[in-house]
Simulated scan of single mutants.
Amino acid sequence: MTLYPSKDTKLELYLRRHLFARGMRYRLHDRRLKGTPDLVFPKHQAVIFVHGCFWHAHAGCSGFRLPKSNRKFWVAKFRRNRERDRRACIWLEEHGWRVLTVWECALRRPVCFTFDELLDFVLCWLAGGCHSCEIRGGEPLPSLVMDIDLRQCRKL
């Protein structure tokens, strides 16, 4: 397993590079937070996880197939990984953080949106204070429900 990096993966670097180019500033792999999120946006009280479809057992995704050899080991490993991810999200939300999970298939093979649309979604999600959600490659981008305080809006 040590041959496969858990941080600074190609997909994570790709997303980071484009978010940085659009003016977003973040912290990386903050170990003080449960699950060590890939990107931490303290200003927005939000974190982003970039999950590989294989290692995090993305159900219903073509990027995940259960290995045929040593099945017991892999089933137990994937179960532990998913449980660890679930506990980390619950802890983060209980402590006031919003969680966005971006799946590998959403970056490699999106079906219903372009990469620019995904970046726009992430920026709106961060700025809008929206609920926690996931971005999957085979589904449309989630709907954003934002609380807008009209008293704080300025007239143009």
Score class of each variant (00 low, 15 high):
Gly52Thr: 09
Gly52Tyr: 04
Gly52Met: 02
Gly52Val: 01
Cys53Lys: 10
Ala57Glu: 15
Ala59Tyr: 15
Gly60Leu: 10
Gly60Asn: 13
Cys61Phe: 04
Ser62Asp: 13
Ser62Cys: 06
Gly63Asn: 14
Gly63Trp: 13
Gly63Val: 04
Phe64Leu: 07
Arg65Tyr: 11
Leu66Glu: 09
Pro67Tyr: 00
Pro67Gly: 05
Pro67Gln: 05
Lys68Ala: 02
Lys68Ser: 00
Lys68Arg: 14
Lys68Gly: 01
Lys68Phe: 00
Ser69Gly: 11
Lys72Glu: 15
Lys72Trp: 03
Lys72Asp: 15
Phe73Gln: 03
Trp74Tyr: 13
Trp74Lys: 01
Val75Pro: 05
Val75Glu: 15
Ala76Cys: 05
Lys77Trp: 07
Lys77Pro: 04
Lys77Leu: 12
Lys77Arg: 13
Lys77Phe: 08
Phe78Glu: 08
Glu83Asn: 06
Arg84Val: 03
Asp85Lys: 08
Asp85Val: 03
Asp85Gly: 06
Arg86His: 13
Arg86Val: 05
Arg87Tyr: 10
Arg87Met: 13
Ala88Cys: 09
Cys89Gly: 12
Cys89Leu: 05
Ile90Gln: 12
Ile90Asp: 11
Trp91Gly: 01
Glu93His: 03
Glu94Leu: 15
Glu94Ile: 12
His95Ile: 01
Gly96Arg: 00
Trp97Lys: 02
Val99Met: 09
Leu100Gln: 11
Leu100Gly: 05
Leu100Val: 03
Thr101Lys: 15
Thr101Tyr: 06
Val102Gln: 04
Val102Cys: 08
Trp103Val: 00
Trp103Thr: 01
Glu104Met: 07
Cys105Ser: 07
Cys105Arg: 02
Ala106Pro: 03
Leu107Pro: 04
Leu107Cys: 05
Arg108Ser: 14
Arg109Met: 14
Val111Asp: 09
Cys112Leu: 14
Phe113Asn: 09
Glu117Phe: 11
Glu117Met: 10
Glu117Pro: 02
Leu118Trp: 09
Leu118Asp: 03
Leu119Ser: 04
Leu119Val: 05
Asp120Phe: 00
Asp120Val: 00
Phe121Cys: 06
Phe121Thr: 03
Phe121Asn: 10
Leu123Cys: 14
Cys124Gln: 12
Trp125Asn: 04
Trp125Pro: 03
Leu126Gln: 10
Ala127Cys: 10
Ala127Leu: 10
Ala127Gly: 10
